[in-house]
Amino acid sequence: MRAVTVTPGVPDSLRLVDDWPEPPSEEGAILVEALAVGVCGTDHEIIAGDYGEAPPGAPGLVIGHESLGRVLEDPTGTLRAGDLVAGIVRHPDPVPCANCAVDEWDMCRNGLYTEHGIKALQGFARERWRIQPKFAVGLDPALAGVGVLLEPTSVVAKAWDHIDRIAHRTEWQPQSVLVTGAGPIGLLAALLATQRGLTVHVLDRNTTGPKPGLVAALGATYHTGTVGELDFEPDVVVECTGAPAVVLEVMCKAAPIGIVCLAGVSSGGRTIDFDAGALNRTLVLENNVVFGSVNANRRHWDLAAGALTRADPSWLDSLITRRVPVGAYAEAYTPAGDDIKVALEFTT
């Protein structure tokens, strides 16, 4: 069968293999026909050779962690043949740590977790894959064209779950949300904020292209410029750019008892002249919270599936700005100017 693979650690080793072996039964009881995989920044970093780890003894790593497939067989009865399904990316470590032992593998403390298409588990960019029932998330049939968005939605579902948990520290009724960055994570974070009935603002650099319209379609307000130029103090910030200057600015911008969730990852290696004392004073005197969030566990994937089911299907479809057949796989992994989400499709 066909599979898109890399040699981990070797830059630009991406290739389409025609004779990749069928998924072994050890991978899971549920056999799935791939429909599509999403492409994200993690894939680009793996292709560049920055990281990635093949399973022990494997000839390479099948990439692709944003999955969508259709069940071919499930002898466990968890799902039925024909059901839409996505595979959870991260699996708990075998030790396990205290968090993995209670299925909070997104909060693994010892780093021995594995991840499909990233770390020691084959990914989903292959014509057929297997998954254990515990890591198989069924999807509403109406999401057949957009279900590949489930993985990034699970990331922001976790972010909002943790925002809600932190909010219980006091009597708090948030009204406004600032999302910085209008990539897939930012737009989906804004979607979940509007589903909570909050007043949503999205800040991004783009003045043209599809992003302003997508934000407006949510009933949210689109901004360009800098954080400092905004004329309000948000109760909640979901920072999705990872840009160091923006990260520091939003920490100072949040309203008293505000919550700032850092969901973007900075590349590092850049020094900024910044008044750390002023930031400390703001956070302490205003009782603000800043926390980081990445990955997701089963609870968040289920929350994400519900959020996608409630969303406008045409809006979700607009997030997928390019659909590329697997035969033209290299095009899917070559960035284009107005890309939001690219889907590599195995069936057309």
Rank of each mutant, 00 (worst) to 15 (best):
Y329E: 09
R15P: 08
L192M: 14
V326Y: 13
T309G: 00
D339M: 13
P75M: 08
G219I: 01
V146L: 03
W172G: 08
K211V: 03
K211F: 04
V202S: 00
T224P: 14
L230F: 10
F291I: 15
G197V: 15
A48L: 01
A101C: 12
P96I: 02
I185L: 09
A220K: 04
M251W: 14
Y222S: 11
P24A: 10
V17L: 14
T114R: 04
I63F: 00
L31T: 15
H300I: 06
L316R: 05
K158A: 10
A125Y: 08
G9Y: 06
H91L: 15
D19I: 01
D18H: 09
A36I: 11
A48Q: 15
L112E: 12
I63P: 05
G57S: 07
L112K: 08
R126F: 04
F232I: 13
N99S: 10
G258I: 08
N99W: 04
R70D: 03
A142H: 00
K253D: 11
E331R: 12
D74C: 02
K119F: 04
A34E: 13
K158G: 00
V237W: 02
I272M: 03
I47C: 10
R169Q: 06
V95H: 15
S176C: 02
V137M: 13
T7S: 15
A220G: 00
D43V: 03
A159G: 08
C108K: 07
T114A: 14
D312S: 13
E233Q: 14
K211G: 11
T180N: 07
E104V: 09
N206Q: 14
A305M: 01
L279M: 08
P55R: 09
A278W: 13
E115M: 15
D74W: 05
V246D: 03
V284I: 13
A125H: 12
G209W: 05
H168G: 12
L16R: 07
I185W: 00
H162E: 11
S25Y: 10
L279G: 10
R169F: 05
D235I: 02
N280M: 07
A157I: 09
E331M: 02
V342M: 11
F291P: 06
